[in-house]
Amino acid sequence: MSQAADLAIDARGVATITLNRPEVHNAFDDLLIAHLIDLIAQARDNPQVKVLVLASTGKSFSAGADLGWMRRMADATREDNIKDAHQLAALMENLNNFPCPTVARIQGTVMGGGVGLVACCDVAIASDQAFFALSEVKLGLAPAVISPYVIAKIGTSQARRYFVTAERFTAIRAAAIDLVHEVVPAAELEAKTEQIIATLLANGPQAMRRAKELAQVANPLPATPALRDYTIGVIADLRASDEGKEGLRAFLEKESPAWIARR
């Protein structure tokens, strides 16, 4: 039975973490989140690692939260939701703070929390067939835990739009708002990623670590513990709210939620 995510480290010191749940569009649940945290720690603690690549199998890069997981958490206590959201926050924080350069290789659709993963990477390369959406409000939720990283990447103005509209946008648009750095034809995605990796490997490993620190120290919206706790509280409250439960129910039953007027 294949793992939900795999870690491979090659002779160059390139670590690749691959999401491997194509049957659910690489959506993540509590088990996958814990597994990813462990894989990131393994890569971080390996002195041979110089670059980390985040990739996935199948048609989608990541559809965000797994619906079965969301269903369970909608019925959980606020305390359990807080604990659960802490794990997601830890995943984003550990990826964002990975000491070596990180590269996201994006071959398909990226939704919700998947956008957070992209935002936490230093370099993001997308196929021209990729689509993106911060889709949480359609379910009566909000992109809470990922918000510090997404806002740091795309800026307040774009976040104010896409957080509330939940619009789908193309890879070209994602590049225009700085969520991704380059968009290439699907057939060239792997080659472009390898080109970026080669560029990184030509640089001083310790110098890149310090250069990455510089960019993060100057971050206008640092992910502080206080901000983390606030965003965790927001998502915990919304998951257990009547609106959040109605949004999830409507999505699962392929109906319009109650807040959309019937005609």
Rank of each mutant, 00 (worst) to 15 (best):
A27H: 00
D29I: 03
L36T: 11
D38R: 08
L39E: 13
A43C: 11
P47A: 06
V49Y: 13
V49N: 10
V51A: 07
V51F: 07
V51T: 02
L52E: 03
L52V: 12
A55I: 02
S56V: 12
G58Q: 03
S60R: 03
G64A: 01
D66S: 07
L67G: 01
L67R: 00
M70R: 06
M70C: 12
R71Y: 07
A76C: 06
E79L: 14
N81G: 11
H86G: 08
H86Q: 12
L88S: 02
L88F: 00
L95A: 06
N97T: 07
V103Y: 00
I106E: 14
V110H: 02
M111T: 02
M111N: 01
G112N: 07
G114V: 02
G114W: 01
L117I: 10
V118F: 09
V118D: 10
S127Y: 10
I146E: 14
S147K: 15
S147C: 12
P148L: 11
Y149A: 13
A152S: 15
I154S: 08
T156V: 14
T156L: 14
A159I: 05
R161K: 12
Y162C: 12
A166Y: 10
E167P: 10
E167H: 13
R168G: 00
T170L: 07
R173K: 14
